[in-house]
Measured scan of single mutants.
Amino acid sequence: KLPPGWEKRMFRSNGTVYYFNHITNASQFERPSG
């Protein structure tokens, strides 16, 4: 389970998975720990 605010997303163009935090508007490719 991801830390609060984080969700898994995917770029439609190339299928790359990334993680987005809707609380802080942060995004990263590494899976957030917590």
Results as ranks from 00 to 15, higher is better:
residue 16 T to I: 15
residue 32 P to D: 01
residue 10 M to P: 05
residue 1 K to E: 15
residue 6 W to T: 04
residue 13 S to Y: 06
residue 27 S to L: 14
residue 26 A to Y: 04
residue 33 S to M: 13
residue 31 R to M: 10
residue 4 P to T: 06
residue 6 W to M: 00
residue 10 M to W: 13
residue 7 E to S: 09
residue 6 W to Y: 01
residue 27 S to Y: 13
residue 31 R to A: 08
residue 34 G to I: 12
residue 4 P to L: 07
residue 32 P to W: 00
residue 14 N to P: 04
residue 30 E to L: 07
residue 21 N to G: 03
residue 29 F to D: 09
residue 27 S to I: 15
residue 18 Y to A: 01
residue 4 P to W: 08
residue 16 T to K: 14
residue 1 K to L: 13
residue 11 F to T: 14
residue 9 R to Y: 06
residue 26 A to I: 15
residue 16 T to P: 10
residue 25 N to H: 15
residue 23 I to F: 13
residue 22 H to Q: 12
residue 23 I to D: 09
residue 10 M to A: 09
residue 5 G to S: 02
residue 17 V to Q: 06
residue 2 L to E: 15
residue 2 L to A: 01
residue 14 N to V: 03
residue 24 T to N: 06
residue 8 K to P: 02
residue 21 N to Y: 03
residue 10 M to R: 12
residue 27 S to D: 04
residue 28 Q to E: 03
residue 29 F to V: 10
residue 8 K to Y: 05
residue 12 R to V: 13
residue 19 Y to W: 10
residue 8 K to T: 07
residue 23 I to K: 07
residue 3 P to G: 04
residue 14 N to G: 09
residue 28 Q to Y: 03
residue 23 I to E: 12
residue 9 R to I: 07
residue 12 R to S: 14
residue 32 P to Y: 03
residue 15 G to A: 09
residue 20 F to I: 07
residue 11 F to P: 04
residue 34 G to T: 12
residue 21 N to P: 02
residue 18 Y to R: 03
residue 14 N to R: 06
residue 29 F to G: 04
residue 24 T to S: 06
residue 21 N to T: 02
residue 7 E to K: 06
residue 25 N to A: 07
residue 3 P to K: 01
residue 2 L to G: 03
residue 33 S to E: 11
residue 6 W to S: 02
residue 19 Y to F: 06
residue 26 A to R: 11
residue 32 P to L: 01
residue 11 F to Q: 13
residue 1 K to R: 11
residue 18 Y to W: 06
residue 24 T to E: 05
residue 17 V to A: 08
residue 29 F to R: 12
residue 25 N to P: 01
residue 26 A to F: 05
residue 12 R to H: 14
residue 2 L to K: 15
residue 32 P to F: 01
residue 20 F to L: 02
residue 27 S to Q: 09
residue 32 P to R: 00
residue 26 A to H: 12
residue 9 R to Q: 04
residue 13 S to K: 11
residue 6 W to G: 00
residue 24 T to M: 01
residue 12 R to A: 15
residue 10 M to F: 13
residue 29 F to M: 10
